[in-house]
């Protein structure tokens, strides 16, 4: 019986015994969903370069994935990934990080990578809080939620990351919760195959910080909440802003084709070579 191995185990570094996530953390589900997508596409880890920033979600790929992995500084993974992709256009470059990393300290890079439409998959595990540092308010924290730095509730508005990335020019944008791992895997597969900037937001439970501080409860209670409050994009367009206020709109927001930066650069270089 001990000889049974999980079919996705082969994608992890041999030295990895277990992930460092807290019990019930949604980041583990994001991890398996990514590997499941790679497995179903029949790709190998050598087809990818993975980049992460700082925070719990950055540890999804580092050190776990048995691949080229660059675990960078806080907020900057997309900037590093851009430098990699521009110089290794034949490889798939995937950034996996959290909401604080990608939208607070690193928000500018996210906006501009989407604007450039550089081919890249960015997966944002959004737990609505700073988990690793002890449960501080994040740009994604719901208004009025209590955190360690908003003891009377947050006074600020909540970032709608997916809408922001879509407005910035991404080719593919989807949002799922960790209650929808199969849909998530399907979107990751599409994102990997997308010629352009592909962004996936995963609403992911953090029972230890978000659950405890805001009163959202345990991992299971949070998944139950995701189940109850998720509505599809199609349904959301027929609803009033008041009706969707407390809902999580999930699904694929955009999936379009437009000029991709690396291809444009290659074309330009080809043209200059011809003229020279």
């Amino acid at each position: 019986m001990s000889s049974v191995e999980h079919p996705l185990r082969k994608y992890l570094r041999p030295s990895v015994e277990a992930t460092t996530f807290c019990p019930g953390c949604g980041d583990g589900t994001v991890l398996t969903s990514i590997l499941q997508a790679i497995d179903e596409l029949g790709m190998t880890m050598d087809d990818f370069v993975f980049v992460s920033g700082i925070g719990c979600a950055a540890w999804i790929i580092s050190p776990n994935f048995n691949a080229d992995v660059l675990h960078t500084t806080h907020g900057r993974p997309i900037a590093f990934a851009t430098g990699i992709k521009l110089n290794l256009p034949e490889k798939k470059v995937m950034v996996v990080s959290g909401d604080g990393d990608l939208t607070a300290i690193g928000g500018n890079h996210l906006i501009h990578a989407a604007r450039r439409n550089i081919e890249m998959v960015v997966i944002c595990a959004n737990n609505g809080i700073y988990g690793m540092t002890g449960g501080q308010v994040a740009p994604t924290t719901p208004r009025e939620a209590r955190t360690i730095t908003t003891p009377y509730g947050s006074l600020e508005n909540t970032f709608d990351i997916s809408r922001m990335v879509q407005a910035s020019g991404a080719s593919f944008v989807a949002r799922w919760t960790t209650y929808q791992p199969r849909q998530l895997t399907k979107s990751i597969k599409k994102a990997i195959q997308k010629k352009g900037f592909a962004f996936i937001e995963v609403i992911s439970q953090c029972p230890v910080q978000f659950g405890a501080k805001t009163g959202a409860g345990s991992a299971v209670e949070m998944l139950e909440m995701y189940r109850k409050s998720s509505i599809s994009v199609k349904k959301a367009v027929e609803m009033s802003p008041q009706e969707i206020e407390d809902k999580i709109v999930t699904g694929e927001f955009i999936d379009t084709a437009k000029p991709e930066l690396c291809e444009e650069i290659a074309r330009l270089k080809e043209r200059i070579r011809g003229e020279g």
Partner: peptide, 17 residues
């Protein structure tokens, strides 16, 4: 780049290729 932070980061990423 969009700022100098991105410039050094893209540079480091490129160097690793």
């Amino acid at each position: 780049t969009e700022d100098e932070i991105s410039a050094i980061c893209a540079g480091i990423g490129a160097s690793w290729t």
